[in-house]
Simulated assay, not measured.
Amino acid sequence: MSQRARILVADDEAHVRKFLVDALAVQGYEVERASDGQEALQLFRKTPFDMVITDLRMPRMDGLTLLKALHEEDPTVLVVVITGYGTVEDAVEAIQNGAFNFLSKPVSLRQLYEVVRKGMEHRRYLLEEAEVLPYMSKELGFEIPSDRKFIPGIASSILRNLEDMRYPLNPNDRFTIPLAVDEALLNAIEHGNRNDPDKKVRVTCRITEEWVEISVEDEGEGFDPDSIPDPTTPEQMTATRGRGLFLIRHYMDEVRFNEKGNKITMLKYNRRIRPGS
Rank of each mutant, 00 (worst) to 15 (best):
P106H: 00
P106T: 02
P106Q: 01
S108E: 05
L109Y: 07
R110C: 10
R110D: 14
Q111F: 07
Q111E: 12
L112K: 02
L112V: 00
Y113L: 07
Y113H: 12
E114H: 14
V116N: 04
V116P: 04
V116M: 06
R117I: 02
G119K: 05
G119H: 04
G119V: 03
M120A: 00
R123E: 06
R124S: 06
R124G: 04
L127W: 04
E128K: 14
E128V: 06
E129Y: 10
A130K: 12
L133R: 13
L133E: 10
P134L: 03
P134M: 05
P134V: 00
Y135H: 14
Y135G: 05
M136A: 15
M136F: 15
S137E: 12
S137H: 13
S137L: 12
K138V: 05
K138D: 01
L140T: 01
G141S: 13
G141C: 05
F142N: 08
F142S: 04
E143V: 13
I144F: 09
S146L: 10
D147T: 05
F150H: 15
F150A: 06
F150M: 02
F150V: 11
I151H: 07
P152G: 02
P152D: 01
I154P: 12
A155I: 08
S156D: 13
S156P: 12
S156N: 14
S157T: 15
I158R: 09
I158K: 14
I158P: 13
L159M: 13
R160W: 11
N161T: 13
L162N: 11
E163P: 04
E163V: 13
D164G: 01
D164I: 12
D164V: 12
M165R: 09
M165A: 15
M165Y: 14
R166H: 15
Y167H: 03
Y167W: 15
P168S: 01
P168T: 02
L169Q: 02
L169W: 04
N172H: 11
N172K: 11
D173G: 07
R174G: 06
F175K: 05
F175P: 00
F175M: 04
T176E: 10
I177P: 06
P178C: 05
L179K: 09
L179P: 02
L179H: 11
L179S: 13
A180G: 07
A180Q: 02
V181M: 09
D182L: 10
E183Y: 09
A184S: 15
L185S: 11
L185F: 14
L186A: 10
N187R: 07
A188D: 08
I189Y: 09
I189E: 05
I189D: 06
E190G: 01
E190Y: 04
E190D: 06
H191P: 00
H191A: 01
G192T: 02
G192W: 00
